[in-house]
Design a protein around this nucleic acid. Structure first.
Lengths: 111, 111
DNA sequence: ATGTTTAATCGTATATTTGCGATATAGGAT
DNA sequence: ATCCTATATCGCAAATATACGATTAAACAT
């Protein structure tokens, strides 16, 4: 990979790809599930549930946070995380727009 | 990454992550857009549209095909691709199930 | 048979991701 | 001040992903 070609695509394409990358790992999907189910913010309870080391979970959380999919609030020695539903809504709309609308137009595939 | 930890997650989580990974690159999103817009199957016309070498586009197409998102039919010296809408529908439902339903349950985030 | 066109694959270089242990940091309690 | 707990970060190793040029393969025409 000589140069980074990603920048030659549109911002929408890059953003959607970024979002997809954030959820492109089962561990991160599992983390999001836990956060969604417990409603309230959680920290290292995720480590107990997942088959991963603490540092690895922390790294996944960082990636989800960087992608804007979760929020993290420092609460004493622990950090409380929760899902950023607004961001999720945005990407969900983007995703559905990109494919659902096009799908209606040409339902019949050739091959 | 000593061992592959991905297998310790559920099949649904793995499948959804797999799908997300397939669209986790702007080039592949762009390819899907082209395929959706032209309706009929296309081959190396994609190379003309994208800022990537032929071999790179071919590789991306292979990944999309492996993920089941597109179909490819050999037609003489060329290969005709098109979107597998059924697979897309499946993953779209899976995605929306995972998050939309949970979202309704707990709209208010703590942080 | 030879050449042309189209696409897949190979080999290679580099970048990024994944994962862990060890270490640092920071807040609370004693 | 010292200890404990919780989390973030560092450093490292291994695996994957990205990208390209060169080569191969396959269909078709000349």
């Amino acid at each position: 990979m000589a140069i980074n070609k990603k920048e030659s695509f549109t911002k929408k394409e890059q953003d959607l790809a970024e979002f997809a990358k954030a959820i492109a790992h089962p561990a991160r999907i599992a983390i999001l599930k836990v956060l969604a189910q417990r409603n309230e913010c959680i920290c290292g309870e995720i480590v107990e549930v997942l088959p991963l080391a603490q540092s690895t979970v922390s790294q996944h959380l960082k990636e989800l946070k960087n992608a804007g999919l979760i929020n993290g609030a420092v609460d004493g020695p622990r950090t409380c995380y929760c899902i950023n539903w607004k961001a999720f809504e945005k990407f969900s709309v983007e995703f559905n727009f990109l494919f659902s609308t096009l799908k209606i137009k040409n339902e019949k595939s050739c091959c």
